[in-house]
Every structure is written in structure tokens, then in C-alpha cells.
Design a protein around this nucleic acid. Structure first.
Lengths: 199, 199
DNA sequence: CTCCCGACTAGACCTGTGTATAGTAAAAAC
DNA sequence: GTTTTTACTATACACAGGTCTAGTCGGGAG
């Protein structure tokens, strides 16, 4: 439920966004109704009017399909500080959305983290960069992943070794972390698929 | 004239793309007609049908605004090899288009260059990175710019000094270039505004 | 208990819009 | 010189689709 919307209104808004980015044009009132099984266009129209009054959409009266979702929640969310146990990928928590095509970095669910510090400088990732990650719980050897350590998220290269798991830093001044078999395995939030830097 | 389209058809296609990305929904046949001053919707409809037959659009019969531009020419063009004297920013020359919002890196006309080699490694720009540049002919001191030297485009930091212009590399093994007042000033194609890396 | 609001159904009105028929005129192709 | 293509005008039709009136039902607030 996004900011004062009812559950149904959220669903309708989400459908409209999905439909639009899938088809290239917004749905009609009746197409919305059909999607939810409404037997009257009035039901869909009511929800859309509510969404408009609440500022989530804009539409031109009388014009078919002439509607625009305003603060789109499509795009890759840039997540800020993340606390352990919190719903990591709650889009609502996003401080910002990156305006690029949903499939820009391939298939899957993505999020971005703003890099603080120079711990991955060896991989040419520097302060302020936005690292793009595909949300997944596993990482293959050698992949750079966002790892939850305590209540901090850090970016590390995951390298399984003989004595356990190595979380390798790409900066000689930042020590790598070695986890033995007795240690609790770290929670992986996503693996790095790209990087965006805005000067 | 893009690939077998008449001049008018190109204009119509461009208008449809602009309208759609500006409004969030495609124009009607009559809105296209109005834009070009056609006094009959038939004229616009004919062009749109031609565009559809040629594979540049798709539309659902009878449905208002239900049209989709297929291979969109919106986005930031990734330019490959560029020869001197050629129309540098001809979108048609693009090997690829980056699917991000036109305003992602701000206002202006943008293009991207794929980085070859490690000449800017000191600025954490590495092989394969896509450097995003705003198309402009001037660079301020300290900005990284795409510079045309002979028939090669290189990425250099532009630093005006006492004896002339320095095109500074960010790699100790790649020498910087110094241009005196007697040298022809280099042609600047654009200044760097960002970077996109896909793993 | 009553009132209000969210979430719908049923049915209808009417206009915006895709699309058709019938032409005109000029340029390009054959 | 004739045909084809491009680029339009003028008019009209039918229906998709926005929007209206009138109502039902349930849940939560006062």
C-alpha cells in the first residue's frame, strides 16, 4: 500500500504501469476492468479517478487511453541504509529510482546501492558510484555481491576456498573477511551486474 | 530518412515517439494530423499505415492510441569507430541504443563511447565501459572530454596551461598530449557526464 | 444504530477516434 | 506517355470507450 492508497488502488496502479510498459500505451478503463474481472467499467473508472485525485495519475477527460502514471515506481530502486531483518527490497524504501529500462541489465529483480568509501577501488568502483545488483541469495565464485554482515551491507567478491568462504575486498588497505565452516554463512542480497556513475 | 522511409514518414514516426515519451501515451490519428496541419485524418492514417507495413510501428485495429513504435530511436546512441569529417552524431551510425530515460544524465544531446584500453584507468574507467558524453564543442578546465585527434577519438582530461592545452591521460604509461598555441586546437565532441558498465 | 466510504453491478449516453469511400495533384518510375 | 507512388482533401460511418445515473453490499467510525 503505497502512501495512502488502498490495496485495490495499488493493484490498479501497478496493473496500469505494467500494461503501459508492456504494450507501449496505457490500458482503457474497460481493459483495467477486464483484468480484475469487474463486470462494469464503472468500478475501474472509480479506482482510476481516486488514483488521479490522490496524484498518482493524470488523465485527459474523455480521451481514450490518455493517462499517465505520475511518480512511476518502475525502474531500479536505489536503496540507502539497510538494517538487518528489514524487508531489503521494499521499493517503498527507495530514496530514488533509476530511470532506465527494466530489462536494461537483463532479466530479474534489480536494485542499486550507492558506494561509500573505496573498498572496491581495485575493481574500478569508486565513491558515489551506483552499483546495480540482481536480487538473489546465491553468488557464484568470483562474483561481486552485496553481503549482509551484521547490520551492514558491504560489497565483496565472493570466493569459496578450502577453509571456507572468502569475502575479498578489492583494496589492499581493507582486509578481506574469511568465514570458516563454523561461522554462520552470510546473507547474500544480490550480485553485481553493472554500474552507473553520474558526474 | 531512416531505412526506406520517406521524409514525411520519418517526420511522422519522430513525432509519434516524441509525443509518446512526452505524454506517456501515443497520439491519436487526428493528433498526428493536427501536428502536421493535415485537414483530414486520412493523411496521417495513411502514413501510419505505411509505417506499420514497413515494420516501424504496430497497432491494434480499431483501438484508439493503441500503437507502439517498434525499434525506437530514442535513447543514447553508442557510437563505434568514428572517422574524421563524418557526421559524428548521426544516430543512424549507432551500433546500439542505451535504454535509459532521455533526461537520465540531464538536458542536452548525449552519446556514448565504448572504452578501449586502459588510458583512463586512473579515473576508474576501464576497458568495455560505456562513457556517456554530452555533445558539445567546448570543455571547461578539468573536464574529461572526447577529443578528435587526427581520425581517432580519445578520452582525455582537458587542462589549459600556460604554454597551451594539455590533454591529460589518467594512466602513467600513456603519455599526455601537449598542444602549443601554434598547434591546431583539437575538436571536442563532448564532455563526460557519466559512465555505464554492464558486467 | 446510523453514517460514510470503499468496492463493486447494471445499464445507458454520446463523443472521440479508427477507418472507409471517393477524389485531386504532383512527382517519380517505367 | 502512361502508370504508379506519394501526399494529401472532404465527408461519413460505426463503434470503442469515457463517463453518467442509480443502485447494492459490507466494514469501520462515531
Amino acid at each position: 500500500m503505497t502512501r495512502g492508497l488502498t490495496a485495490r488502488q495499488t493493484q490498479v496502479l501497478e496493473f496500469i504501469e505494467e500494461f503501459t510498459s508492456g504494450h507501449g500505451y496505457p490500458p482503457t478503463v474497460r481493459e483495467v476492468a477486464a483484468n480484475f474481472g469487474f463486470r462494469s467499467p464503472r468500478a475501474a473508472h472509480d479506482h482510476m479517478k481516486a488514483l488521479e485525485k490522490k496524484g498518482f495519475m493524470r488523465s485527459r477527460a474523455g480521451r481514450p487511453r490518455a493517462l499517465e502514471v505520475l511518480h512511476s515506481r518502475r525502474g531500479i530502486p536505489v536503496l540507502g541504509k539497510i538494517a538487518a531483518g528489514q524487508p531489503i527490497l521494499a521499493v517503498e524504501e527507495a530514496e530514488e529510482l533509476l530511470g532506465l529500462e527494466p530489462t536494461f541489465f537483463g532479466q530479474g529483480r534489480f536494485f542499486a546501492l550507492r558506494v561509500r568509501g573505496e573498498s572496491m577501488i581495485g575493481d574500478h568502483i569508486t565513491e558515489g558510484d551506483l552499483v546495480i545488483l540482481r536480487a538473489q541469495e546465491e553468488a557464484r565464485s568470483g562474483e561481486v555481491a552485496a553481503v549482509l554482515l551484521g547490520d551492514e551491507v558491504t560489497l565483496k567478491r565472493v570466493v569459496p576456498g578450502k577453509q571456507g568462504l572468502e569475502l575479498r575486498s578489492a583494496n589492499p588497505t581493507v582486509p578481506s573477511i574469511f568465514l570458516g565452516p563454523q561461522d554462520e554463512p552470510p546473507r547474500i542480497l544480490g550480485v553485481m551486474v553493472g554500474l552507473v556513475r553520474k558526474n
